[in-house]
Design a protein around this nucleic acid. Structure first.
Lengths: 108, 108
DNA sequence: TATATTTGCAACCATCAAGTTGCATATTTC
DNA sequence: GAAATATGCAACTTGATGGTTGCAAATATA
């Protein structure tokens, strides 16, 4: 599971980090100020995102600037797109599916 | 984190379950045959997917048929769409971003 | 050079998640 | 009614995960 994009995106803090960094590149310290947790905790999240290449880094002196890497996001996008495609195919053969769902009233 | 779609989709087994059930509704037993793990393990995954409403169930006698619920998938889709939108906006102001990325050669 | 700043790394802890086994319940079949 | 089948629920184990603190390394500043 190491380096898995789905795993990386599952964590809400990491999603927030992605959104922040996608909007503007940042250093770990700058990022950490946006969260309640410690700098090290944020750094660990960053590391996870770097491991799966959702972030790239650029060291400038003692600072490290992290950037969003859109390429890897595509991988994620791809799964959903494929899934949606599949599921929209199903819509074309709605027949059985709808019949079953409609005869199902004991559930909700 | 209970009932979180991102969390639900993070697990590869659950993604496989979603794909299988989206293709065709299934009972837990039928599903379990597709995996190496025990029926109970699969059932737990199903429960997670039901909790976040990615699956709905229809009890028929002693069998329970699970169906894919496309509605909730939208929620997931929404985040990605918003994110992509944001990130594509950035592309329109590529200037600074590209300058920074290009001056970054010590990383790869 | 001494000090402050930015960062990563390692150790540790608490919680959660995924798996297993065992058992109870409901339904079908004999 | 008894046996078989389909399923859910609970207890337990183990490993991963997110958090903390402490410290070392590198760079900037005085």
């Amino acid at each position: 599971m190491k380096g898995d994009i789905f795993q990386a995106i599952a964590d809400p803090t990491r999603r927030a980090i992605l959104v922040l960094i996608a909007a503007q590149s940042m250093t770990p310290n700058a990022l950490a100020e946006h969260f309640d947790t410690s700098r090290q905790a944020v750094s660990k999240h960053i590391q996870v995102l770097v491991d799966c290449e959702l972030l790239t880094q650029n060291k400038v002196g003692r600072e490290i600037h992290y950037y969003f890497n859109p390429v890897k996001m595509k991988e994620f996008d791809h799964w959903l797109t494929q899934f949606k495609k599949h599921w929209e195919d199903r819509f074309n053969q709605l027949d059985q599916l709808l019949i079953n769902l409609n005869s199902n009233s004991d559930e909700n």
